[in-house]
Amino acid sequence: MTDAAFPHRHLLGIQGLHPPDIQHLLDLADGHVDQCRGADKASDAMAGRTVINLFFENSTRTRTSFELAAKRQGAEVINMQVSTSSVAKGETLIDTAVTLNAMHPDVLVVRHPESGAAKLLAEKVNCAVVNGGDGGHEHPTQALLDALTIRRRKGRLDGLRVAICGDVLHSRVARSNIHLLTTMGTQVRLIGPRTLVPRSFEAMGVEVFTNMREGLTDCDIVMMLRLQTERMRGNFIPSVREYFRFYGLDRDKLSRARPDALIMHPGPMNRGVEIDSDVADDFERSVIREQVEMGVAVRMAVLRLLAGNLDHTRRNQPFAGAGGV
């Protein structure tokens, strides 16, 4: 049966989700936090299910998080790390998808360096697809775990002021967070140089600041992004040294935010590039480790929901990958 509170077959992005969808996911995930903190973490909610982690990009933390989330609910997990060094990345994607589909997995978690790859893959399979990050497009479970972290700490999402700082242009995390937070009534500010935060973001219902001190003023949450030098072609910033001077989070800039402002980072951090170690390791303010914990809970909720939704759709579906490859 499709869960009426989450009537979706895949989780390809936050865009398109409504506030009740998001509430429901966060409520479920909240329950899993307690489960994971207890001595007996295991359940059999997903017994007999197969989850495949299909990763076309290197990732340890996201893959591990999905793997744990599936295993704690009794699912079988296969990890596939596909090399992206081959020229025809996309061809590999579709070929791999069609092959895996024939093995009847229940959920495919996919990470890929190109925007739109999860959507393309979802068209070729008849299992549920979770987007584990596609290029510069979306990373929905990251936004959900960020939201859960905020909600547990601040008790709500609406009415808060969140600053997302740094390399927004190349960040799927930023896009998913913008969609989620604006959907839930949170004020969102983007902070960075125009090369990394183009004006076109203003159409997404956010405020854009080029001056970090101004942008951080009275914020409840400071979300730092990793500078993604591997995705940059050309000159986006003159140097890391200069970037840190103007957009690195240090005590001085942080002092402009609210005194109880929390610091978040999706990891992995570049200390001394976008964040000062001193701030990153501040127990009072930094919730970076908590984010990792929430990640497992959120992914447990997502996997269970989608696997549950699958039953009644899949039987009637023809083999989706058969034609038009």
Binding site: G116, G136, S200, M204
Partner: peptide, 18 residues
């Protein structure tokens, strides 16, 4: 012209180079 679609809101949302 290093991107793949028109620069602007849609490209930004899709995470595609403009």
């Amino acid at each position: 012209a290093t991107g793949v679609m028109n620069s602007g809101e849609t490209a930004t949302r899709l995470g595609l180079g403009g």
